[in-house]
Structures are given as structure tokens and as C-alpha cells.
Nucleic acid binder design. Structure first.
Lengths: 139, 139
DNA sequence: TTAAATTAGTTAGCCTAGGTAACTATATAC
DNA sequence: GTATATAGTTACCTAGGCTAACTAATTTAA
């Protein structure tokens, strides 16, 4: 087994357990991890159109439509007119901003437990590796 | 955004694009990445029962049943009697072993391209980080 | 300046990769 | 010898995407 194969093996092995447990953490906010990813984007980088969200998350437009619809029903986001009549800007509601901050606090111990015993520097290196792969994959 | 949040952000962002492209690579062998993961386990660690595969991959028994059924239809694996009449051991067929080696060669450039520009040492660190998280998550 | 092409978003229906509940058959414990 | 546990299967459900085909608005080009 090469070092590359081993890396991607571990990468894949972690995905389900982590996502499942994250979904459990998010249950009390009626959210799934995919929806949480949208909220994270909005709080970190401000309002975005649906196409922008799709490009950022590397998913297709119809997937974004559903995610945003669900977040809208929960009252966490709202859409406002964009720079032309086609575009919709998605932004957090006041309630949404409060909830996102609450969730971030709620998730903190979970994420810290997941990374327990890992030196900060190693987390940073691993983060850079993942980002680099993402860039490599998209040419 | 904390360093932990940033790590898991990058982790999640990479998942779909990578899996989608891996599935494209595996298309000519009529395999999906989930099925490939089973073949990888069998070639690396020898024959396993369905329950063992489930435990190793952190998925449920019915999911393994389906994966193994599909691999059986393709002629890549076969099941033989286990240590009692309930247990089935899943092992690669002769054809399966040939194919797995062929696929590993086929995937090599793809995986290397994905990790292009990443120092070997950083890959190792990232691999350890992922393995540690996996362990932390399962207590 | 109108016709063709492009872009933002939606709807409908599909797929992968899982999951749970409930079952059968065999094995173990009391 | 009955109760419990274990290996595997079947049926059905869910998350988190996908493509194709559409509408409405905008831009390009003839």
C-alpha cells in the first residue's frame, strides 16, 4: 500500500463516523451537516447568490436550491434581490445569526474532542494538505 | 473561525469532488468507490466475514451485504464457509486479485496528481491526524 | 434592434451510499 | 432445553447529492 493510498484510505474511513456524529450534534437545531455548511459559508463570508454557494461548495445549483429552501423554512436565512432580477442573494436572518453563533459554541467541545491529542501545527499541516488536494483536483 | 472549524471545513469541502473523480476513474471496472473500499480491505488484509468488514469500515451489516453481492456479481469476490455455519468469509477470486492490482496501477497517477506538490512528510502527518480523529470519535 | 445565446434559479426524477427494523438460521449460556 | 446472542438477509427509508428540462432575465451579435 503506497503512502497516497494510505492517506485516502484514512480520509474515506473517517467520513461517515464524523458526519453521523456531527448530524447528531446538529439534531437539536433541526439541521444536517450539509445545511450547516451553508450557514458556515454565510457567517464567514457574508451573503451569496445560489450560484456562488454552488461554486463554493462544489455542488450543483439544484442541491443549493433545496438546502436554502430548508434553511428558509427554519427561519435561519432569507433571500433578497440581487444585482439583477434573476439573482437572489441568500443571507442570514437575525435569528439565523444568533443560532449560528449558538451552534458554533455547541460544536466546540465536539470538534475539540475529535482533534484531541493532535498538535496545533499538525492540524494546520493537515488543513493545508486537504486544501491543496482540493485545488489539485480542480486543475 | 477556529483552527478546528477550518480543518473540518476543508475536510468536508474535499469529499464530493474527490469521490466523484474517483468514481469516474473506477467506471471502466464497473465499480463505485464504496465497492473499491471493500476490495482494498480484502487485498490488504485478506479474507473477512461480513461482520468484520462492517466493523472495519464503520458501516452496518446490510450495507456490507449489498456491497459484497455486487462484487460477487462482477466476479471479483466469492464467499466461502466460515468457522461456523452462520459465518461467510468473503475473499477475492483469482480474477478479482488481477483486477485489484490493475486498478491500483490505474489509480496511481490520479492519486499522485491529487497530492502533487505535497511533501511526503506532510502526507504522513495528515494521515496520522485523520487516523487519530477516527480513533477519538470512537472513544 | 431584434434573434440567439447565456445565466440564475426551479422542478422533477434519479442515484450512491448509507441507515433501521424485522426476519431466518445457527450457536452459546443458563 | 429454553433463552439469548450472533451472522447474515430482506424490505424499506434517508441524506446528500446528480442530470435533464424548464422559466425568466440578461447579454451578445447579426
Amino acid at each position: 500500500m503506497t503512502i497516497e493510498q494510505n492517506f485516502f484510505n484514512e480520509y474515506r474511513l473517517m467520513y461517515r463516523p464524523f458526519t453521523n456524529q456531527l448530524n447528531v450534534q446538529l439534531e437539536k437545531y433541526q439541521l444536517y451537516s450539509s445545511q450547516w455548511a451553508v450557514l458556515r459559508l454565510l457567517i464567514d463570508k457574508g451573503p451569496h447568490s445560489l450560484v456562488e454557494i454552488a461554486n463554493f461548495m462544489f455542488i450543483e445549483k439544484p442541491s443549493v436550491t433545496r438546502l436554502v429552501q430548508k434553511l428558509g423554512e427554519l427561519g435561519y436565512v432569507e433571500t433578497v434581490a440581487g444585482k439583477d432580477k434573476r439573482e437572489k442573494l441568500v443571507q442570514l436572518t437575525a435569528h439565523g445569526e444568533t443560532i449560528v453563533q449558538e451552534i458554533q459554541e455547541h460544536l466546540k467541545p465536539f470538534l475539540e474532542k475529535a482533534l484531541a491529542g493532535v498538535p496545533t501545527q499538525d492540524i494546520e499541516i493537515a488543513t493545508q494538505v486537504l486544501a491543496r488536494i482540493c485545488a489539485n483536483i480542480h486543475q
